[in-house]
Structure formats: C-alpha cells, structure tokens
Amino acid sequence: MSETTPGRGVGAGDLDGLRARTRALCARFPDQYWRDTDRDRRYPQDFVDTLTASGLLAVLIPTAYGGSGLGVTQASVVMEEINRSGGHSAACHAQMYTMGALLRHGSDELKERYLPRVATGELRLQAFSVTEPAAGSDTTSIATAATRAGDDYVITGHKNWTSRILESDLALVLARTSDRGADRTRGLTLFLVDLRQVRAEQPATLEVVPVRTMFNYATNQVFYRGMRVPADHVIGEVDAGFRYVIDGWNAERILLASEAIGDGYWFIQRAVAYANEREVFGRRIGANQGVQFPLADAYMKVRAADLMRYEAARLFDEGKPCGAEANMAKHLASEASWAAGNAALDTHGGNGFVDQYDIERKFRETRMYQIAPVNNNLIKAFVATKVLGLPRSY
C-alpha cells in the first residue's frame, strides 16, 4: 500500500523521516508486548518511557521549552504510526493535546515551570479530568466545584473517564467556579494540578478508583474531596475554562482520527497478508471477490479519512478555524477503521478471534473511536447545525 499524501505546507520528506523514526521505535515493541499488556490490563510504561526519551512525545512543545516545535500534522503522524505498528497510542496521546491548553493559555510562570520538564519526561502530563457521570457529553453541566479559599481553590466533586491519572504527575481539571448563567459556557475554570504535591501533602483529598474496560485503557473514576490547588495554577482566566477545553478538542479529534487511521491501515495490511497466504479449496482466499471487495472498500474509506485528517491538521497548524474538519476527520476515520476491522475479522474467519493473530485485540481497541472523545452522533448534529445551518437539536 502506498503512503498517504501529506497536507499542503508540510514536506513529504519531513513526514517520511518522522514516520521512519516512529516505526523504528515501535519495532522494539512487537505484537507479543501489546498482547501481554492487554491481557494483564497493564500500563505500557516502558513503551511510553522509550517514546518520551526519543522526544516524540514533545513534538508539539516549542523549542524554547525543550520540545521539537512541530505541528499537529507531525504529531498526528506519530500517533498514526504507533497504531499502524500494532501498538495502542491511548497510553500516551493525552500529553499531545492536554499540554496545548497550558501552552496557549497558561501563564508564563506555569509554562516555564512545567513545560521543559514535560518535554524531557521528568514530568508526565497525561490526565485530563473533565467528564462527569451525570453530565456526560454536556460538559457545560458539570457540577464539580472549585471555591476560592485564600490563595487556593478547593475542589470537590466526582469525575469519570479520567484516564492515566495514576501514571501522571500533572493533571488538567475542569471545575465550576460560578453558576451557569445565560451564557452556559461561562463559569467553568481549568486548573493545572500538581499531583505530586497532592499525593504528598493531602492524599485524603484525592481518591482514584480504576475502571476495567473491554480493552487496555488506564481509566478511572476520581473523587475530589476538598483538594486544594494554588490560585496561580488557574489556566487563563477564571470562569473561561470551557473555551480552553474546546480549543484543545480540535487537536484531540485530529490526533484520535490519526490513531483510527493507523488502525485501519493495520487491519488492511494484516488481512491482505493473510488472504495472500491462506489457501482453502485449493486456492488462496484473496482470489475471492467476497474477500477482495470488503478490503478494497475499507481501504478507500481509510484513504478518504486520511485526506480529511491532513486537511484538518493543516488548518489547525495555520491557526485557522477547523472545528468542522476536525470533527469530520474523527467521524470518517472511526467509521473507516471499524469497516477495516470487520473486513479483517471476516478475512481471518475463526482465527480472527484468536489472540495470537491480534485482530480481536485491535478490534476491541478501535471500537472506542466511534464513542470517544465525542460520540459520532454528536458530530453529525454539529455538522448539521454548524455547517449546514439546520435548527439545533440538542
């Protein structure tokens, strides 16, 4: 299969080199490694440490803070290649998009204090604590509260789907600092929480309850019980945190689209190789159009999603509005990877359910992209109302 065409303004050679570098690193972590971590629901710490040491997790951090100073286009290629190699970038993708809120909206003091150490891997910023059980996708309805108390804010509430907080040194936490008024996006504030300080000085204020999911995803419920955070750790302005979260959502959607695209290519590559080798009734099964057509259809869907990913990333890197493109990229990529996963499972037949072929593992992993970080139905509603001008449905 040929490589995808990079977005405008990005040199093909630059991306090819980045792909090769990422692939070489991922080759050190073969299928058995990911099989074992999935079976044991173990965080792939050594993979993340190796990726961090290589500098690949710091591609979005400016050179002034020790990073590579590259764009979302390049970051998306790293995420794609991890999944395309058979790995699972959910173990580390949050650092790519969470640190954007700190970079674009944090104070100079916070950036200088934390970003260089995030770039070197001394500190890990992997946790983004936003979603709550009652609010779900309606982020403006969250109830976790932050109350000013002298030089601190005191945070109390309950979050779910706060992933990798046990593996993180820092977390971004969204909490309500004032009542929601006519502008329901106001009243929420984004905090940078130094988890090392919390664990050392006020451990009783933070309870983390791991949640076992259908694939290896280090996610948790979190209970904040009067956790104190210094007021100077507010990101940007008080009550304006929802805007900063939205700002990061576009990058998040683009990066997760690239992961789904990586899965899609992986499924197709594995299925094509299997179809070219497996013989039944005296010939290779790849000669059957019943096998060929679903794979060809899935491949075209992945390629189309790939192009939308590059378009969304180009707009993001150029500082242009990209909400529609980022959402469409995520939607198209998640649907394409699911089509590729089903085609690969059908191609492998019963062997697709055997863990040694890795299809069933990746099949479980790629299903998430239709649900998270935003449900595909919400993307359709967004496109219908924001792009097509139809009446709001939610």
Rank of each mutant, 00 (worst) to 15 (best):
V77E: 14
Q197G: 07
A271I: 10
L123S: 09
R186Q: 12
V354F: 12
Y244C: 11
G236D: 05
V10I: 03
P133Y: 06
M96R: 06
N376G: 04
L206I: 02
K362D: 05
L192E: 02
Q269D: 14
K111N: 04
Q221T: 03
K330L: 07
G389Q: 09
Q356W: 14
R309N: 03
S334T: 11
W34A: 00
A344L: 08
S393K: 04
S68F: 11
D232P: 15
A384M: 02
T162K: 05
R35F: 15
E201G: 04
T162D: 01
D36Q: 11
Q289I: 14
K159A: 00
V78Y: 07
T347C: 11
A27I: 11
A91W: 00
E365S: 06
N220G: 04
A240D: 15
K380Q: 12
P373W: 01
E109I: 10
R8M: 01
A336V: 00
N377K: 03
D16T: 10
C26K: 05
S137R: 10
P391H: 05
P6S: 01
A312E: 02
E277P: 08
G248C: 03
A333F: 00
A218L: 04
E365H: 12
S137W: 15
D232M: 09
Q269W: 13
F293Y: 15
I371P: 07
V198S: 01
D169F: 07
T131W: 03
D297F: 09
